[in-house]
Design a protein around this nucleic acid. Structure first.
Length: 437
RNA sequence: GUGACCUUGGUGUAAUGGCAACACAACAGUUUGUGGUACUGUUAUCAGGGGUUCGAAUCCCCUAGGUCACCCCA
């Protein structure tokens, strides 16, 4: 402790402290449940990959790859990169493990940290969590709708209000190219009225102009954007119409947004974004179809559709909307012990309860009963088991109900049974993913 | 990557060149046998470094971090 320099967390990363955990569990559980209900299975992919993977998938000239990657050389001089997104890794895994031999479509979900070297801001971090869905090996428009429905259900389960799904189609890769040229031409005509940034974008990537928020560019775009859908070829249009029809049938609400484009190069056909009405600038998640990606990465020709959501952003909205997020019950039983003779017995009691799959907390180092009960109250533990000299002598324990303050003295033999019964009466034992429903 | 504002105990704030204050939290005690109340006590070389000054939390410079806008995105 002689060094006075405090080590701070690096820029743009953050600790998620115990107080925050109820939000994180809530979002993760609801995501997992929504995904599993729709037939998605979990995949865990590496946190870093060959740099080349992201260059080839996300696109060498996107901002993500050109400016925001955490790339480094390992000791064998391989260039590696902390993943800036999840789809590339999933596609790589699909190819590497020959998943085309599994029943198609292959439906996968993931959850984990992503890394982008960007200037931190509200809802934007250098390390942030994404939850994602990927569906590979099916081109039918119904799977687009199905996946979007899963995303909608996820937000509904969280209890979120005023969530909008914006949707658009970029068409086949050829149509996408055509549309870009058409857009370029249209913009060229209005060039003098565009803002300085957009004049630059016009050269680099005309699609990006569609994202511009300045008044004048907006006006121009509103005029010309409806004609963009028309620039799609018949196949693309037909496919998109089908997707929308299925969504109608599933009663998923959406909003057509011809200006919607996405920052990753690999998207074709359907693209969508999830936003909260209260803050439409910051999207909560998004996704789209990536029919060429797997092949581009050296795999079989495999159509695919995916989604990625920003966990921190979802939690921000949860807090903003002051939604009821269930409190975590950290433990089922708190053990209060009085004096040195009670301690060995407390240890025994803890062991017995743990065998019954209960979560136990205690402050075995503390002496006074007030302190321990105060702690139990603070932790919202439903039950307390009190052990003093008297109980050691009488071979029993006191079970105290923390809500109504009632107490019952039970003999050691019945302790576990009665504890379980009391918890069950309170409806507190939540089934884990291993238990049958 | 550009610009603006900001950083004081664990948290939220005060002091704007002259002894770092308050609230909450935490810990200890009042109280070795019954909880969210009450009272008492303890807890900061003012983000880090350098400079100006008799004297700096306060003024200046550098570094790091935060917030906001742009860029972009989850």
């Amino acid at each position: 402790m002689t060094d006075k320099k405090k080590i701070q967390a690096p820029r743009g990363v953050h600790d998620i402290l115990p107080d925050e955990q109820k939000y994180w569990f809530w979002v993760e559980n609801n995501f997992r449940e929504a995904a599993q209900a729709a037939g998605f299975e979990r995949i865990i992919i590496p946190t870093f990959e060959a740099t080349e993977l992201f260059k080839r998938s996300v696109g060498e000239f996107t901002d993500i790859v050109s400016k925001e990657m955490y790339s480094f050389k390992d000791k064998s001089a391989n260039s590696l990169t902390l993943r800036p997104e999840g789809t590339a890794g999933v596609a790589r895994a699909y190819i590497e493990h020959g998943m085309q031999t599994m029943p198609q479509p292959v439906q996968l979900y993931y959850w984990g940290p992503m890394f982008r070297y960007d200037r931190p801001q509200a809802g934007r971090y250098r390390e942030f969590y994404q939850c994602g869905l990927e569906l590979l090996g099916d081109y039918d428009p119904i799977v687009d709708a199905m996946l979007i429905q899963t995303v909608a259900k996820f937000h509904k389960k969280l209890g979120m209000q005023d969530i909008v799904i914006k949707i658009n189609s970029l068409g086949t890769e050829r149509a996408k190219g055509k549309m870009m040229t058409a857009l370029g031409k249209l913009l060229e005509r209005n060039k003098k009225d565009l803002c300085a940034d957009c004049k630059l974008r016009l050269k680099k990537n005309p699609l990006r102009v569609l994202d511009c928020k300045t008044g004048k560019c907006r006006e121009i775009l509103d005029k010309i954007s409806p004609s963009l859908i028309d620039s799609l070829d018949d196949e693309s249009k037909k496919r998109f119409t089908k997707v929308l029809e299925y969504l109608d049938e599933m009663r998923v609400e959406y909003e057509l947004d011809p200006k919607l484009v996405r920052g990753l190069d690999y998207y074709t056909h359907t693209v969508f974004e999830v936003v909260a009405r209260s803050n439409e600038e910051l999207s909560l998640g998004g996704g789209g179809r990536y029919d060429t990606l797997v092949k581009q990465l050296g795999g079989p020709d495999t159509p695919a559709f995916g989604y990625a959501g920003g966990v921190e952003r979802v939690i921000d909205i949860l807090k903003q909307q002051a939604l009821a997020v269930p409190d975590l019950i950290q433990s089922d039983v708190f053990i209060v012990q009085l004096g040195d003779r009670a301690k060995p017995k407390a240890i025994e009691v803890v062991e017995k309860l743990e065998l019954a799959n209960l979560r136990i907390s205690s402050a075995l180092g503390r002496g006074s009963i007030q302190t321990q009960l105060r702690l139990a109250a603070k932790l919202h533990t439903p039950l307390t088991i009190i052990i003093g000299d008297q109980e050691v002598h009488d071979k029993n324990v006191i079970i105290r109900d923390m809500e109504d303050r009632s107490q019952e003295t039970v003999i050691d033999r019945d302790m576990v049974k009665i504890t379980l019964k009391k918890l069950e009466e309170k409806g507190l034992r939540v089934p884990t993913i291993y238990e049958s429903r």
